[in-house]
């Protein structure tokens, strides 16, 4: 899993390199940066190369085997034909969309609520309350939400407590008892259409695994406070004159946010989405503590697959191939972002 760390570290290198260009006064900055540069070259980029090499090798027992696998790249063919990994890619896509959507919307909503009521004396209190979950580790969040979404002892008890199930029973309906993370249903399946187009049977159900929704909610709970803080930071840079001008032009409070402030916050939104994307692409701890691989791999993630394939099945080449695929996924997100911020710092 060094690849995801690599992506994050790569980001900071590029940023500090950008600063260094501005402050270039002789050799000192270079010498100061040198140790961390060496460490980065060895432990990040060097190991990415090692990982890539292992993924092409024959190493699939405990004993290292550095011979190249023939035919070249066969491990990647194996990887993409594994139904479990196909399910992982589906889950990553679904989870990413769900998680980013709700975390951004909820974070923005909280930011607007706080910004709108910022003169109230309780606001600093709530600002901290919303931000606190971000200080927790994903492991803690995962365990707590595992309990919350336990079908026997979790929030399902509320359906009894608030009389919803009694109401349903009086109507002759079955009680409401969602399985949450234990529900194997895959909603909105596209298999029927795709199989007609492709003409082959697919082992993996393409659709939205219902069990991912509670996981996305837990992720949202943890990170929406962070999103809120980002937006609040952005809102303080928007001067009151702009708001006043909009009001004088006859905009309602809602229209001020809808037409003026949210569009002005576009750079913040981009940063938020990028940061959330790289969280969701490499997500491991939250999922493994909350739902594990899930029923029929409904909540399995590439990072879990890498871990189990490498250390449980000792298929080092296959695990490393999956890690490289994760790196490429992350690069799709990070590289354009880095290019953009580099371009901005040069201007």
């Amino acid at each position: 899993m060094s690849n995801s760390a690599a992506a994050a570290a790569g980001q900071s290198v590029a940023l500090s390199a950008g600063h260094a260009q501005h402050r270039w006064k002789g050799l000192t900055p270079f010498l100061v940066l040198l140790p961390s540069l060496i460490a980065l070259v060895i432990f990040v980029y060097g190991f990415i190369c090692v990982t890539l090499f292992i993924s092409l090798s024959n190493w699939n027992t405990l004993k290292p085997d550095n011979t190249l696998r023939i035919p070249f790249g066969q491990t990647y063919v194996d990887l993409f034909s594994t139904p479990r990994f196909q399910a992982d890619l589906r889950n990553t896509l679904v989870f990413t969309v769900l998680f980013i959507l709700i975390a951004t919307l909820v974070g923005l909503g909280l930011a607007i609520l706080i910004d709108f009521n910022r003169k109230l004396f309780v606001i600093p209190f709530f600002r901290n309350v919303y931000l606190f979950p971000y200080a927790l580790s994903f492991v803690v969040t995962g365990v707590a939400w595992r309990w919350i979404f336990n079908p026997e002892t979790g929030i399902n008890l509320f359906f009894d407590m608030f009389g919803i199930n009694q109401l349903l029973a009086s109507l002759g309906q079955a009680p409401l008892k969602p399985g949450w993370t234990t529900d194997p249903t895959v909603a909105f399946q596209l298999n029927g259409i795709l199989e007609q187009v492709l003409g082959t049977e697919m082992r993996v159900k393409l659709g939205i695994p219902v069990a991912l929704i509670p996981v996305a909610i837990a992720g949202m709970w943890q990170l929406s406070g962070f999103v809120m803080a980002m937006y609040l930071g952005g809102m303080t840079t928007i001067s009151d004159e702009i708001r006043e001008a909009a009001r004088i032009d006859g905009a309602t409070e809602w229209q001020v946010y809808r037409r003026v402030i949210i569009p002005l916050l576009r750079p913040v939104t981009i940063s938020v989405v990028i940061i959330l994307l790289h969280v969701s692409l490499k997500i491991f701890d939250l999922v493994i503590t909350m739902s594990g691989v899930g029923p029929a791999f409904a909540t399995d993630m590439p990072a879990i697959y890498v871990f189990e394939t490498t250390f449980k099945a000792t298929r080092y080449n296959l695990g490393m191939a999956a890690a490289i695929v994760m790196l490429i996924l992350a690069a799709f997100v990070i590289v354009p972002y880095l290019a953009r911020s580099l371009r901005q710092s040069e201007e």
Binding site: T61, P83, P184, P295, A296, T309, K312, A313, R315
Partner: peptide, 24 residues
């Protein structure tokens, strides 16, 4: 059996518990 088969068995069981497809 090798760890590799052990993992394959675990993975196959994970799916079978839900889909009950003997042939698969």
């Amino acid at each position: 059996a090798p760890a590799l088969f052990q993992q394959a068995l675990n993975d196959a069981v994970t799916v079978f518990v839900v889909d009950r497809d003997v042939d698969a």
